[in-house]
Every structure is written in C-alpha cells, then in structure tokens.
C-alpha cells in the first residue's frame, strides 16, 4: 500500500473520532443531530476510501447505505421527532463538558494502547482502523452514559454502531450480507425507538429518562 492512501484512510478515520468528540459536547438536540449526520458522512467517506484501497466494490454499497440511512434518513427522522415532541430547546447537563471531554481523551488513549498492542501482526491500515473504531465505540458508550435525554441516547447508540461499521470495513473480507443486515437492524432499531419515544412522551410528558425512574418509585 502506498503512503498516500494510508494517510488518507488515517485522516478520515481520525476525522470520525474527532466528530465523536464534537458529538460529546453538543447540548442542543438539533446541533447534535447535525453533528451525527456529519459523522455519518465522514464514515461513508472512510468506507468509500476503503472500498477504493481494498478494491472491494461491495464496500461502495456499504458506503451508499451509510450515506443514505445514517446521513439522511435517520437524522431527518430524528429531526422531525424532536420537532414534533417540541423538545428542541431543551438543554441537558448530567456531567459537565470538561470532565466528559477528559474522559473521552482517556478512552481514546486507552483504545490506542490496547489495540495497537493486540494487533501487532496485522497490517498498518487495519491496526489504525481498529484503534479508531474502538475509540468511536467507547465514545458512543460514554455519550449514552452521560446523557439523560432519550434522543441523545439514541444518537449515542447510533454513533457506537458507526464505530462498528468502521471496524468491519477495516478488516478485509467482511461479507456484504452482514453489513446490509446490520444496517437494516439499525433502521428497525430507529423505528422501535421512535415509537417508544412517543409512548414515553405520551405517558410522562417528557423524554427525560429520569421520569422513567421516578415512575418506578425511585428518584435519583
């Protein structure tokens, strides 16, 4: 592999981690959704570049699916949900921004240390990809843990899944069927979660998960 293609792949995957960080500190829902769409675009770029480098045409399909669903369908759907729920003005602060960012940096360095050590035999591109993918997964999880609003939890979950796609395309020989089925399961998850959001809203007048806990008789 020549130096340039490696650098480009490195750049795009690193951009994905960067967008994950940007997701972490968005406290307005619309900004969060835009950022998520941006992440999906970057992911599609990365997958497309992988398809070009690996000379694997089916990865173009993956990239297209990512672009269509993750960058357009899901953000638009979530946009409309947020608008209909009327929660676009809500600001959520569970954990302050600075500690979250610091934790995110620690997680990225942890995933670098682990992945670069574990995958010593593999080729350089796959190693970098896996390390970045683990970072994205961990940052997505961190987002789910630090957010309270159901919509931002959904976004955290989706961005976690973006990390998985990145890992899958980095490794050579991932069958297309698996990726398509993952993409569709994410879509179905979105539908289910969307329905749940409205149900929660109907019941509790809020999509703040705290309301769920209070209805169970525990206020924390």
């Amino acid at each position: 592999m020549d130096r340039l293609s490696f650098d480009i792949a490195h750049l795009v995957a690193g951009g994905l981690v960067l967008v994950s960080f940007m997701l972490l500190y968005q406290d307005r829902l619309f900004a969060l959704l835009n950022m998520f769409a941006l992440q999906a675009v970057v992911l599609a770029l990365s997958v497309g570049w992988q398809a070009y480098v690996q000379d694997a045409p089916h990865l173009y399909i993956t990239a297209a699916i990512t672009l269509a669903f993750k960058a357009i369908v899901i953000p638009v759907a979530l946009h409309r949900i947020v608008a209909r729920l009327g929660i676009h003005r809500e600001v959520e602060t569970v954990v302050a921004t600075v500690p979250t960012m610091l934790a995110g940096i620690a997680l990225v360095s942890l995933s670098m240390v682990v992945m670069l050590r574990v995958t010593q035999g593999a080729d350089a591109l796959a190693r970098e990809d896996l390390a970045f993918a683990l970072s994205v997964v961990l940052l997505g999880l961190l987002m789910m843990v630090t957010r309270r609003n159901a919509v931002s939890q959904v976004v955290g979950f989706m961005s976690l899944e973006n990390g998985l796609i990145l890992a899958a395309t980095g490794a050579k020989g991932m069958p297309l069927v698996v990726e398509i089925s993952v993409a569709f399961s994410i879509l179905i998850a979105l539908i289910v979660i969307g329905i749940f959001l409205f149900r929660i809203r109907e019941r509790f007048d809020s999509v703040d998960l705290q309301a769920l806990d209070e209805s169970r008789g525990e206020s924390r």
């Binding site: 569970v94 999880l141 843990v145 998960l209 769920l212 525990e218 924390r220």
Partner: peptide
C-alpha cells in the same frame, strides 16, 4: 433496581 443510565454505566 438501578436506572437505565446506571446499568449502562
């Protein structure tokens, strides 16, 4: 009897 967020954590 934890909240969803605590389970995730």
């Amino acid at each position: 009897f934890l909240t969803i967020r605590q389970y995730l954590s």
